[in-house]
């Protein structure tokens, strides 16, 4: 049985589609969004996360590290990332969990075992399973296997994707998927490149194709003030989404600053978000109104 590297499995997810869901976060993403709130999932590999506040100064990690990547400074450790290959030896001996490894190789059986625990809840709430990430579509072959197990149990299968993969990857699993939660970050290619590092043509083309096939789609638009909230962008998005045949809802997501601790634990820079203010409610409300005026079902998520 094949497997995939899983960042985490989150039960009782309330904001990843209909009802109460279990969300499986895959590792690896072709985009590199500046505001990503799951930065640990961007890399396709295991990654070391540090939580300095939990360190009790026992120095067990120092002895365990084969690469001498850990340095102690006044009883606090830090990691020389250039030497660290996230082998996880330090995390193995770090009982206070000040050092942990994100990413665990799981096969279908292991994931299903966790998913099955809430089967009553899916039935009650009309919920199910959402595959997210990272970019789950990088794992289409594995999803073929996992998704078959999910729908065999009668759970709904949602895919939370940014869409930046060849369309043939969607074709591998399309028949299994109930709903796509499909991200559109910007209609403007330059803005899109600025936010994600990649062009948006493939993304827009893929969602159009999914729509042509009649797949159920929820569009998700993360909004950051002064980045992608311009009237032009929203107008373009409205015009584009209007043409799509099977979009049932548009979720507007304000960008928040909740990922600070994660960025710290990965020694990554979060100043792009931290230096900006959180998206104001009124901005979100206005955007929602514009969609609604155009006869579309938009809400805040």
């Amino acid at each position: 049985m094949s497997g995939a590297l899983i960042s985490r499995i989150q039960r009782f997810s309330l904001h990843d589609g209909d009802g109460v869901r279990t969300t499986v976060f895959f590792k690896g993403c072709p985009l590199h969004c500046r505001w990503c709130h799951n930065p640990e999932t961007i890399t396709p590999d295991r990654i070391l996360m540090t939580h300095f506040e939990k360190c009790i100064g026992c120095r067990a990690c120092l002895e365990a590290c084969p690469h001498k990547a850990i340095v102690f400074d006044e009883n606090r450790h830090f990691v020389k990332r250039e030497l660290c290959d996230s082998c996880g030896r330090c995390a193995e001996v770090c009982f206070p969990e000040a050092m942990t490894i994100n990413g665990q190789y799981c096969d279908v059986g292991e994931i299903m075992k966790e998913i099955d625990k809430d089967k009553e809840l899916y039935a009650l709430s009309k919920g199910g399973v959402t595959l997210s990430g990272g970019e789950p579509m990088l794992h289409a072959d594995f999803i073929r296997e996992l998704g078959s197990a999910i729908i065999e149990r009668g759970y709904t299968l949602f895919i939370d994707t940014a869409g930046y993969v060849p369309f043939r990857e969607f074709e591998k699993i399309n028949d299994l998927v109930d709903t796509y939660l499909y991200d559109i970050k910007s209609m403007n290619p330059d803005t899109h490149r600025f936010i994600t590092g990649k062009d948006n043509a493939l993304i827009l083309e893929n969602v159009r194709k999914l729509s042509d096939l009649g797949k159920d789609i929820i569009i998700r638009m993360p909004i950051m003030e002064d980045v992608n909230d311009s009237d032009e962008n929203i107008s373009a998005a409205i015009a584009f989404i209007k043409e799509l045949k099977s979009v049932r809802q548009i979720d507007i997501l304000p960008i928040h600053k909740l990922a600070s601790a994660k960025y710290r634990s990965l020694d990554l820079d979060y100043s792009f978000v931290e230096d900006r203010k959180e998206t104001d409610k009124t901005v979100i409300r206005k955007i929602i109104e514009r969609f609604v005026e155009n006869g579309m079902n938009a809400k805040e998520n």
Binding site: L14, G19, L121, L124, S125, G127
Partner: peptide
Amino acid sequence: RLNTQFYVDLLRYFMVN
């Protein structure tokens, strides 16, 4: 942040268990 239906689901889940 949570809609009413969520609490209905929560109650029923508690009861099922």
